[in-house]
C-alpha cells in the first residue's frame, strides 16, 4: 500500500492495464475525499500535537470472488484511490497476487527507488565539511 500511495495515478493505471481487463468488482465504498489531521511530536519525539490537515481520498472495492481492497491516498484524486483499492483487492486474490507483485508493485517500487536514489545523490553532493579557522596571534 505504501508503494501504491507513492505512485502517480497514471503509473498505477498503466501497470494495472498491463494485467489485462480487471475481473468483475464493485465499489463497496465509492471514492470519498476528506481530511486527515497530521500530527507531529513536540520536540520531534515527545507528546503528539496537531500540525495541520492534509487532503486524503479513500475507496473500497470488492471482487466478485469476495476480496475487499482499500485505497487510502493523500490528495483528492478519486481515480487514484479507486485504482489503489483495486490493486489491493487483486493482491489479496490468489489468482492475481503474483501478477500484481510482478507487474504492478515491483515495477512501481523499482521506479520509486530510482527516484529516491537520484534525490539522495543530489542531496549528498551538497554535503559540506566546515572547518573552523584558528585566529592569528594579534
Amino acid at each position: 500500500m505504501a508503494v501504491l500511495a507513492q505512485a502517480t495515478t497514471d503509473e498505477i493505471a498503466a501497470a494495472l492495464a498491463a494485467l489485462g481487463p480487471p475481473p468483475a468488482h464493485v465499489e463497496v465504498r465509492p471514492a470519498e475525499t476528506g481530511l486527515v489531521m497530521v500530527r507531529g511530536r513536540i520536540g520531534g519525539d515527545g507528546a503528539p500535537f496537531n500540525l495541520g490537515e492534509a487532503t486524503a481520498t479513500r475507496c473500497a472495492v470488492q471482487l466478485a470472488s469476495g476480496e475487499i481492497g482499500f485505497g487510502y491516498v493523500l490528495g483528492r484524486d478519486g481515480d487514484k484511490a479507486r485504482l489503489a483499492a483495486l490493486a489491493d483487492a487483486l493482491w489479496q486474490s490468489a489468482d492475481y497476487q503474483m501478477a500484481v507483485e510482478q507487474n504492478v508493485v515491483g515495477p512501481l517500487r523499482a521506479r520509486q527507488h530510482a527516484r529516491l536514489a537520484r534525490s539522495r545523490d543530489e542531496t549528498a553532493a551538497t554535503k559540506v565539511d566546515f572547518f573552523t579557522l584558528v585566529r592569528g596571534d594579534n
Partner: peptide, 11 residues
C-alpha cells in the same frame, strides 16, 4: 470536507 481522523504522529 469531512475529517477522517488524525494520523499517527509523523516521525
Amino acid at each position: 470536507l469531512p475529517r477522517f481522523g488524525a494520523s499517527e504522529p509523523i516521525d
